[in-house]
Simulated assay, not measured.
Amino acid sequence: MLGLKKPGKQSKFRGPCQATNPIDRCWRCRGNWATGRKRLARCVQGFGWNTTGGLTDNFYVVTNGTDDDVVNPRPGTLRWGVIQN
């Protein structure tokens, strides 16, 4: 059952945000999470914990889902975005 805990067991989730994973707890539990997405760069764990990509640079939004030209990818595709400086 949701919301019930065993007697004597303290819940590690307090407050209005009930995020169950550490990444969401790091940034999505904040009131301004939608405008503060760059905070995600500070929430990295595991293999990429020391990366800073996205912290100070611009966002790239994929607007084209096609991936049919490997040699000359079109602007707006993920393949085109990852080859940019």
Rank of each mutant, 00 (worst) to 15 (best):
R28M: 12
D57A: 12
P16W: 10
N58D: 15
P73H: 04
P16T: 10
D57T: 09
I83A: 00
R79S: 07
F13A: 07
W49H: 12
M1I: 05
T66Q: 09
G36R: 14
P73V: 01
G15A: 10
T35R: 11
I83V: 06
N50G: 02
F59R: 08
F47P: 12
K5R: 14
I83W: 02
G76N: 03
Q45F: 05
G8R: 05
Y60N: 02
T66L: 10
L55A: 13
R25W: 03
Q18I: 07
W80C: 01
G54R: 14
W27E: 05
I23P: 03
K38D: 06
I83R: 13
Q84I: 08
R42T: 13
F47T: 09
N58A: 15
M1Q: 13
T77K: 05
Q45P: 00
F47A: 13
D24K: 11
P16K: 11
C29I: 04
I83S: 00
C17R: 03
G65M: 13
D24A: 10
G8C: 09
Q18T: 12
C29S: 07
T77D: 01
R39I: 09
T20E: 14
T56Q: 13
M1G: 12
G8K: 04
Q45I: 07
R14G: 08
R42C: 12
G54I: 11
L55T: 00
T63A: 10
L78C: 07
A34M: 12
P75W: 02
W49N: 06
R25E: 08
N64Y: 12
T51Y: 15
R74M: 08
G81R: 02
S11I: 10
R25T: 02
G54M: 04
N58W: 14
D57C: 10
G76I: 04
T51G: 15
G54K: 07
D57H: 09
G46W: 01
W33K: 08
D67C: 05
V82Y: 12
F59P: 02
V70A: 11
R14P: 00
G48M: 09
F59V: 09
G81S: 15
W27K: 05
V71A: 13
N32V: 00
N64S: 08
W33S: 04
P75G: 04
T77Q: 00
T51Q: 15
V44L: 15
P22K: 02
T51M: 14
R79C: 00
V71D: 11
F59W: 15
V44I: 11
L78M: 10
L78H: 10
A41W: 01
G31E: 09
P7M: 05
T52R: 15
Q18Y: 06
G76E: 01
F13W: 03
R74E: 10
